[in-house]
Deep mutational scan, measured.
Amino acid sequence: ENVVSAPMPGKVLRVLVRVGDRVRVGQGLLVLEAMKMENEIPSPRDGVVKRILVKEGEIVDTGQPKIELG
């Protein structure tokens, strides 16, 4: 899985990584606000952040790609 998608609709509060960052499985990639709760979205695997496809403040839909890992 190279693309991390939104598990639920919500607002991107914070992006916790930058392009080029090495990430580990379970590491937080971003914080999504859904139903007035903050949810940290974890990396599904070890890898390197290739692209960030969302911006802080953006509203995302379920299944929308957010971060691409290499």
Rank of each mutant, 00 (worst) to 15 (best):
M35E: 13
E68K: 06
T62W: 10
D46G: 07
M35A: 11
I52D: 02
A6L: 07
I41P: 01
I59H: 12
N39H: 15
K11I: 11
R24G: 08
E58K: 03
V3S: 06
V49P: 02
D46Y: 08
V23S: 01
G63H: 09
M37T: 12
S5F: 14
N2M: 14
R14N: 04
T62R: 13
V23L: 03
V25F: 12
L29Q: 00
V15Q: 01
E56A: 11
A6H: 05
D46P: 06
Q27E: 07
E38P: 09
R24K: 13
V49D: 02
R22H: 13
R51S: 10
N39T: 14
G10C: 08
E68W: 13
R51V: 09
P9V: 09
V25Y: 12
Q27F: 04
G47E: 03
E58R: 02
E40S: 09
L29H: 00
G47V: 02
L13E: 02
G10H: 03
V60S: 03
I52W: 03
L53I: 07
V17Y: 00
A6W: 07
I59F: 14
G70L: 13
V25N: 09
V31K: 03
V23T: 02
R18T: 10
M35D: 14
K11H: 05
L16H: 04
V31R: 03
P9F: 10
G28D: 03
V15H: 03
P44G: 04
L16N: 04
M37S: 10
R14F: 07
V23W: 03
M8R: 09
D46T: 08
N2V: 14
L53F: 14
G57P: 00
E58C: 07
L16E: 02
I67D: 02
G28K: 10
V19T: 07
Q64Y: 07
V23C: 06
N39Q: 14
L16I: 06
R45A: 10
T62S: 13
L32I: 14
Q64K: 06
V15R: 00
L32N: 00
V19S: 04
E56K: 09
R45G: 06
K50I: 14
L13H: 04
I59V: 11
P65H: 09
L30I: 12
M8Y: 15
V12H: 00
V60H: 02
V49N: 01
K55A: 11
L30V: 11
V49Q: 00
P65N: 07
D21I: 08
T62K: 14
L13Y: 03
V12A: 00
P65E: 06
L13C: 07
T62F: 12
D21F: 07
V4C: 09
R22Q: 11
G10Q: 05
V25A: 13
L29V: 07
E33P: 00
G10L: 05
G47M: 03
P44N: 05
V17L: 02
V3T: 11
G20M: 05
M8S: 09
M8A: 08
A34E: 05
G28P: 15
V17R: 00
P65T: 07
R22V: 13
P7V: 11
G47R: 02
L32W: 08
V48N: 04
S5E: 08
K11G: 01
L13R: 04
R24P: 01
E58G: 05
E58I: 04
T62D: 08
